[in-house]
Design a protein around this nucleic acid. Structure first.
Lengths: 121, 121
DNA sequence: GCAACCCTGACACGCCTGTGTCAAGGTTCT
DNA sequence: AGAACCTTGACACAGGCGTGTCAGGGTTGC
């Protein structure tokens, strides 16, 4: 039987047991429970916990950022409203922090290509 | 000429001047500047500020949530990594807070429909 | 039945977000 | 020139996030 208890899971994922409980609470990775209520982390959960860790570290993102992204998937109304707002922004981009200029440019080109370049100018 | 200074803009948008500066700092709505550095809010910015306000109120969302969403648009690598992570989640959804179940279900059906009928029109 | 584990709940603490307010100094308009 | 604006920078403070730790109480395995 391949399910680890919280301390074991903490060991192999690099998170503290405390954080595993927290991550569950914010809705990101929720393990099954044993009959008596013990958390049981299967291989899938362990993998997700490891990749989550990488995601956060690589991009300097917070758990609540990812939690929000999850909300965006579960609440269509929120997603639509948010995307509508951002869409309007896209037309005339606002002050972008210096370090992100390059990324922004990349992204713009990507978008243009994807759209079939309707505005080659 | 239809550009308002910060206090006037605050008046018509419902934000405080302080918050208009803050919103600019987090990269959400940045007005043009006069030669001497005064912020000048045009009709477009005013509209964006009002809709932003509505967006936050309607969905109990924070400025940093929206700021993150903006990052997702400007940093393809971040977007891809995040979406990959969420995608894996989608297969076996995790504990969803009670109140959101209905929305989740809606969303699922929406997706299925969208996938089955690639542009009815 | 006892050690070693698990659970939830709480206190604590530093950092970030959101917001007000004030100071020191430039700009605009009359 | 003086009132009424604007600018940036700082102090302040509540509330939330991320995290540790500890207490009181169940579960498991030998």
């Amino acid at each position: 039987m391949d399910a680890l208890t919280i301390n074991e899971a903490a060991e192999t994922t690099g998170w503290s047991p405390r954080m595993l409980r927290y991550i569950e609470r914010v809705g990101l990775v929720g393990p099954k429970r044993s009959a008596s209520g013990y958390r049981l982390y299967g291989p899938a959960e362990l993998q997700r916990l490891r990749t989550l860790r990488e995601l956060l570290e690589r991009h300097d993102v917070s758990l609540s950022d990812i939690a929000f992204e999850l909300r965006m998937r579960n609440e269509p109304q929120l997603r639509d409203d948010t995307e509508a707002w951002l869409e309007a922004e896209a037309e005339r981009p606002v002050h972008i922090p210096a370090a992100d200029w390059l990324l922004w440019e990349q992204n713009k080109h990507e978008k243009l290509l994807a759209l079939g370049t309707p505005e080659i100018a």
